[in-house]
Write a protein that binds this DNA or RNA. Structure first.
Lengths: 308, 308
DNA sequence: GCCGATCCATACTTGTGGGGCATCGAATGC
DNA sequence: GCATTCGATGCCCCACAAGTATGGATCGGC
């Protein structure tokens, strides 16, 4: 062992010092600490040597805190309290009733009612667990989860690479329908459904392949199966951009969302009858993450999704 | 050694954890801490067992802080900072340039100019040493010093019991003259001096034997030596009470103070020519008190007194 | 003034456990 | 496949914390 220069000071010294300082009596402190008195004498001697200060005045009979000792005692009380607090909090996190969960939310998924209800429900049941909600794109979420800067994501299954199978755990909590978004003044607006063939003649807005390749490719493959793959006149990186463009009449848009309730009164969402395409809304988290709070969160979200 | 239930957690665990948590790498942390890597593995294992929480996610290659670990790291950083701070402060007190000195001041002695100057001078030279000035009677000061609730007192020598010789250190920093306090309208007011014989016919105010027996007895002994011991019509427990009574014409008062400058424009202080009585203003402190700041304070007050 | 009690310090011994070294096992990159 | 990275494990050693016994100084009771 290469000899040590640094502080050999340990919590033991502080715990002993606190006990003796409070009592101003080695014997009683030793009793309280359940150690023999000479142990205290030695540890205090070492502590004083380390600090270069006498912490006690040695009286002919007994000891008394020196002025340095009095000041040091105050600090030690704080330190030991803080240590206890840190231990308690760590244990609390072990129990899963304390901590922070960093949740990734893409805007389109945050719009699902049962997601909101689930988050609300969890907050009510675990008020001491902080939900750190972060709005971020699906691919970014997956990367952040793998990297450890995010704990759980809410994304479409299409965004999850199968090669991450063993590092990322996942669970489905719902499905997303793929619909056509049209402006209320559009000819399709009053229709109950449309076909891909009909869409082919329109100016079509779709997702951006660069920001969501898995999603894009699965959608395109399904379109091709109908025999009427659209040509996107504009790729949109987010659903809100796409909706904005539809709202100003730039064209019709293919979007995946929950139900047929549109986010804008000027927009109608129409089922596409011949498109065989379903996405799953997935919870994603690191398989190695042992956080009990996270497990509880996942369980509660899944349960909430089922009973919706 | 009776087996221990309590926390075996030590600062070593926290220091190791902090290093590894910062690096998220056992090897580099071991290098920084100048210990071998297996030592860290074991200490972290013990720490996790103690807390009941996994602080790191073990990856196939390397580690990463778990969410509990992240939270714990923040607390540990605080704790270790606070420990360093406490050590620095303790060392500072060892150097004598930091700390608190509890100074007892009786009102009459606080009125001495060179005392005020001395306190001011010390504060200027040691701005990081807090002077905790406490107004209290002489006997109370001596008791508090012996008891350890006061660090240094400023009292007349008459208040110090010789039997405390080996427990209380003392040093003279000036003398106090014993004078007659008279109202400006009194017949003595324009005199340069009076005799005890003249005083004998007056209504005389003096100190209270109960609150200052040493002072009272020395004064009375000197009075008796003059052959004209006064009879006190009123004993006063403090000088301010005595001055108040003199100011309203209740009588003349025998007081010990510095110079002939009275605290009240209606009062004159007249020397008593035949009274052979001198008191010393003393600094008193515990002989066992090793505080460097206190020594510095005592030295500075003595020096200030000499050069006044 | 002697005896016992109190209280911290010291001397000596014991055993726990922290650390070093060597090695393993798993994953990764060329 | 082979070398490398990285944490975990096994084994040994010795440093040091704690225990027992005792010393030295003071104080109180009779």
């Amino acid at each position: 062992m290469p000899h040590k220069y640094g502080s050999a000071m340990e919590l033991r010294h502080l715990r002993y010092f606190r006990a003796i300082g409070r009592e101003e009596h080695f014997g009683r402190a030793a009793l309280a600490l359940r150690v023999a008195q000479p142990a205290l004498t030695r540890q205090i001697r070492d502590l004083e040597a380390e600090l270069g200060v006498e912490l006690f005045e040695r009286l002919p009979r007994g000891v008394r805190l020196s002025s340095a000792g009095r000041a040091f005692l105050e600090e030690v009380e704080d330190i030991l309290k803080q240590v206890d607090r840190a231990v308690d909090r760590a244990r609390g996190m072990g129990s899963g009733h304390l901590g922070t969960i960093r949740v990734g939310l893409s805007e389109i998924i945050a719009a699902y009612d049962y997601i909101s209800y689930g988050l609300f429900h969890f907050r009510e049941n675990e008020p001491s667990v902080v939900l750190d909600l972060r709005s971020m794109g699906s691919l970014h979420q997956v990367a952040a989860i793998k990297e450890g800067t995010l704990d759980v994501g809410l994304v479409y299954d299409a965004h999850i690479d199968d090669r991450d199978r063993d590092v990322l755990e996942r669970a489905p909590i719902g499905t997303g329908e793929t619909l056509l978004a049209v402006h209320q003044s559009h000819a399709f607006a009053q229709r109950d459904s449309v076909t891909m063939a009909e869409i082919a003649g329109e100016s079509v807005l779709g997702p951006a392949r660069a920001t969501a390749p898995g999603y894009y490719d699965r959608m395109m493959a399904a379109c091709i199966r109908t025999g009427n793959a659209p040509h996107f006149t504009q790729e949109c990186t987010t659903h809100s951009i796409l909706f904005s463009l539809v709202a100003v009449g730039m064209g019709v848009g293919i979007v995946t969302t929950a139900g047929t309730r549109a986010p804008n009164p000027n927009i109608r969402l129409i089922p596409i009858s011949d498109l065989d395409l379903q996405f799953h809304v997935m919870l994603v988290w690191r398989a190695r993450d042992r956080s009990v709070a996270l497990r509880r969160f996942v369980d509660m979200m899944m349960q909430q999704a089922q009973t919706r």
